[in-house]
Design a protein around this nucleic acid. Structure first.
Length: 710
DNA sequence: ATAGCCAATGTG
DNA sequence: ACATTGGCTATG
């Protein structure tokens, strides 16, 4: 914000006299809108956010409002201004035109100098309203980022054609979904949650969704209930497919016109048109992917997020806000309800419950048992005795589950994402390197890690090829397609479908088929669910030192197993993993909340997020050292490191915050206890701004909530 | 970032 | 005496 510098405030008259003098005096050309023009009679000062995300320029600048722009230069509109000009003997020189937003109209300015005029009002659309501005400010503060950067995430680029069209209002008042609570009746507190929404209260719930296809309808009912109570509603989903399912459920409840779908699939212009309908208040219900977390819904009554453990919820642009955290901020700031739902539970969700901020919304054990499939595990001890199973190189139990499932319907095989767990093969004969105990694929989990089985985790020192006796390995990438081919040969009578990153299959019919999919791309079965699922993804994750490996493996398993028929209808999911491990046990008991609670306790004991908050400072050693030396950290902050970062391999595309190839960078972590996250971000931002403004040596990167802590 | 100033350095 | 370069600073 603008600095409080204590200088005497000039009366508006004197200020304007200065501007006029400047305007009539100099020989230089001035913006055409300005030459000789008078100023706005009322509120002649516009406070402008310039659209440059520089941490050290993270404040507002005052401009004079020419009379001709008086009516249009309202708070929230996009403008163009001269920025970076210098002032010499009463005239201004240079400075380029850049975009910005009018944030406020004022009678006078704190700035003691001569104000430059607004150059142009780009659009009369008030896209950055005070509520959205306050949210962006809070997000920037939370993440030690620049306000302009966050605004760029929140306000889509202008599409003139979309602005020319008026936004159609809904066909009438939103219909009351009142046909009872639907699937919410299965949850002891489900109806109470909906009733609270109807009353206009702001209940906050962490919802453990029952397995099965019901959740999009339940989410839609919560949104529709809020809308019927006269408030706005917003749901953020991890991908376009999930958003489309909720969109369809909402259309079924309300008909068309009462909500919009904000996803990237629509294309920039259609997306902006829908966003404008929300911004203008014509539509008050939004379903979308992460950018929708900022959707300026009027009178927000409910903010909902599905599957917050999905990394797609974190924006990939600085300062990398996470939709869960943004919605928690919004619910607090705007007095809205929060619904954080999923089959899995993050430690963050558990923390919201444990702190008392949110209440659990879960079904009873009996209901869970009646809706979940039977979970079976195959650990390293289960040999493949069945000759047919041995030829398919699958443990016999897995083979059996596939065969029995295929007799009754589609069977899902969840395989690791391509390139995620590189498989190894004999360098001489190309035969896949197999585990001696369970025939699972061997994998090198980390660069210097031991060779171990990708399924049961058994280490395989001194490996030799079973086919040719060779002792050297080479990496081969085995994706879904290859797994599909292998399984197809094992079950020649059954059609094989694949679904993965580049070719996602939305649904599969209720007929016997092998459906090979990577995590997150699982097709939704059209019938009562998959007859069986084989979960081959996860071991590579569990072997990692990553903080979230267990949580993430369980999340992927639960999301796949939730697509399987209930145990009572013959549904079975087989997971190839050691049954003693915590995530495996939690899957067997279908207890995601319990897993998250234990996970949270562990992290609390170790001083890990989300109980502590962490920020990473990375860069060349001298830059990291200088920033750490300059920063005035809160007294309870603790600096860990710095330690050397792994060197970027040449050729691999580099992400921001990673060292350029060949450079040796370091990373320090700064950790604070709960409650000191805000001061930590503020301190880092201040130090960063001071160093950048002075060009004080090489810059360091600051990132709040860094990924890959472990 | 970016433009403009200034001083220091280089060139005829 | 003048041009070129690099550091420094403020941006309304």
């Amino acid at each position: 914000m603008d600095e409080e510098d204590g200088r005497a405030r000039r009366p508006a008259g004197e200020q304007l006299a200065l501007v006029r003098a400047a305007a009539s005096g100099g020989p230089r050309a001035r913006p055409r809108t300005w030459r000789g023009a008078a100023l706005a009679p009322q509120l002649p000062v516009a406070r402008v956010l310039v659209a440059k995300g520089l941490v050290h320029l993270d404040r507002l600048f005052d401009y004079a409002v020419p009379a001709a722009m008086d009516a249009e230069a309202q708070p929230g509109v996009r403008v163009r201004v001269r920025f970076g000009a210098r002032q010499r003997d009463g005239r201004r020189e240079g400075g380029g035109l850049i975009n910005g937003f009018v944030v406020e109209r004022r009678a006078d300015s704190d700035f003691p100098g001569v104000l430059a005029p607004l150059a142009q009002v780009l659009s009369t659309e008030r896209v950055l309203d005070p509520g959205l501005l306050a949210l962006c400010r809070a997000v920037a503060d939370r993440y030690a980022g620049a306000l302009a950067d966050v605004v760029q995430l929140a306000v889509p680029p202008r599409m003139a054609r979309a602005e020319r069209q008026p936004s159609a209002p809904p066909p009438g008042p939103p219909p009351d979904p009142g046909a009872g609570p639907g699937g919410w009746a299965r949850y002891p507190h489900g109806s109470a949650f909906l009733d609270a929404l109807t009353r206009g209260d702001a209940p906050r719930a962490v919802w453990t969704a029952l397995p099965g296809p019901g959740w999009p309808d339940e989410l839609a009912r919560a949104l529709a209930t809020t809308l019927a109570a006269g408030r706005g509603a917003l749901a953020v989903l991890p991908d376009g497919r999930a958003a489309a399912r909720v969109d369809a459920a909402l259309t079924a409840l309300l008909g068309a016109g009462h909500h919009v779908l904000l996803t990237a699939d629509a294309g920039p212009e259609a997306r902006y048109r829908r966003w404008l309908a929300v911004s203008r208040g014509a539509v008050r219900c939004v379903v979308g992917t992460r950018a929708a977390m900022f959707a300026p819904v009027r009178g927000l009554g409910l903010a909902a997020i599905w599957d917050d453990g999905d990394e797609a919820h974190r924006d990939d642009r600085a300062p990398h806000p996470h939709a869960r955290d943004v919605l928690v901020l919004r619910a607090t700031q705007e007095g809205a309800a929060l619904l954080l739902g999923g089959h899995a539970h993050t430690a963050e969700a558990a923390q919201l419950v444990e702190s008392g901020w949110a209440r659990p919304l879960a079904a009873g054990r009996d209901t869970v048992r009646a809706t979940a499939p039977l979970i079976r595990t195959v650990g390293g001890g289960d040999e493949a005795r069945d000759p047919a199973a041995r030829s398919a190189r699958l443990p016999s139990l897995a083979w059996q589950a596939l065969r029995e499932g295929l007799a009754r319907g589609p069977v899902l095989v969840q395989v690791p994402r391509r390139g995620y767990a590189p498989r190894l093969a004999c360098a001489r004969c190309r035969a896949p390197a197999r585990c001696g105990r369970c025939h699972g694929p061997l994998a090198a989990v980390g660069p210097d890690e031991a060779l171990r089985c990708g399924w049961c985790g058994t280490e395989a020192p001194g490996w030799h090829c079973e086919e040719c006796g060779g002792g050297r390995l080479r990496a081969v990438v085995v994706g879904a397609r290859r797994t599909a081919e292998e399984l197809g040969r094992a079950f020649p009578a059954v059609p094989v479908r694949t679904s993965g990153r580049d070719q996602v299959l939305d649904t599969v019919p209720d007929r016997p088929a092998l459906v090979v999919s990577t995590p997150g791309a699982e097709p939704v079965p059209e019938g009562p669910g998959y007859a069986a699922a084989l979960l081959l993804d996860g071991w590579a994750l569990l072997g990692r030192p990553d903080l979230r490996s267990g949580e993430e493996a369980l999340r992927r398993w639960l999301n796949a197993a939730a697509l399987v028929r209930p145990h009572g209808e013959g549904g079975t999911a087989v997971v190839l993993a050691e049954p003693t491990l915590r995530p495996v046990q939690s899957l067997v008991r279908w207890d995601p909340a319990g897993h998250a609670v234990r996970e949270l306790a562990d992290r609390a004991a170790l001083g890990f997020p989300p109980v502590s908050r962490m920020a990473a400072v990375s860069g060349p050693p001298e830059a990291v050292g200088a920033l750490l030396a300059a920063v005035r950290l809160p007294p309870d902050a603790e600096v860990l490191g710095p330690v050397p970062l792994p060197v970027t391999e040449p050729g691999r595309p580099r992400r921001t915050g990673e060292p350029p190839p060949g450079e040796r960078w370091e990373r320090a972590l700064v950790r604070v206890p709960p409650g000191s996250g805000g001061p930590l971000a503020a301190a880092l931002k201040t130090a960063q701004a001071a160093r950048l403004a002075r060009h004080d040596g090489a810059p360091a990167w600051v990132r709040v909530d860094p990924p890959d802590i472990g």
